[in-house]
């Protein structure tokens, strides 16, 4: 019996691979159950390009202020970044950030995308696009933007959720449309 992650890898590798024996909802449920990438890096490395997050609150220890040497896991970094950018409301914690991502992935309106990124190393990707307006009742801290989608990215090779963030529906579609072997399943 093929496992969900193996099916997502096969779907990323071939545009003729059938979805069966899974449904898109079952594969989304698998993605929602996975852990986030857990590599830890100092803030200075995460933010070498981008705005300055020094002095903002630590998303897992909110009474602690971030410094350049603060070690952040990938999930913590994404919580810092997306809250700073205003995509989650101020004060959102790592757990709350991840809870909104998982809730959006599980939402019935979501679309599953599969393929490989169109860059030099072409890593496998699964993506889930969720209409923010449709899912707003299950999202606790996400800032809902007009015509916005939550876009969640999963790496089926490493079996890790990489990120999730809201963006305009057309831009989310544009991102996945560039993938090699791209297909969408609802």
């Amino acid at each position: 019996m093929v496992k969900p992650a193996a099916k997502l890898r096969a779907l990323a590798d071939s545009s003729t691979e059938p979805l069966a024996p899974f449904s898109a909802a079952e594969l989304r449920k698998h993605i929602a159950s996975e852990q986030c990438a857990d590599e830890s890096r100092p803030l200075a490395e995460w933010q070498a390009v981008g705005p300055d997050f020094v002095g903002r609150y630590h998303p897992s220890r909110p009474t602690e202020a971030l410094s350049l040497t603060t070690e952040l896991t990938s999930a913590e970094w994404h919580a810092v970044k997306h809250t700073g950018q205003g995509e989650w409301i101020e004060g959102t914690t790592t757990e709350e950030y991840l809870a909104d991502i998982r809730a959006s992935v599980l939402h019935a309106s979501s679309v599953l995308d599969v393929g490989r990124e169109a860059n030099g190393r072409r890593p496998m990707r699964s993506g889930v696009r969720t209409e923010l307006a449709a899912a707003r009742t299950v999202l606790k801290k996400t800032a809902v933007i007009p015509d916005g989608h939550m876009f969640t990215v999963y790496d089926p090779e490493r079996r890790r959720i990489l990120t999730g963030f809201p963006l305009h529906a057309t831009r989310a579609l544009a991102k996945v449309s560039k993938w090699t072997n791209h297909r969408s399943f609802q």
Partner: peptide
């Protein structure tokens, strides 16, 4: 955006 102007511009520079 929940960042201050200084957090943005210092990071941009």
């Amino acid at each position: 955006m929940n960042l201050t102007l200084d957090q943005y511009i210092n990071g941009f520079e």
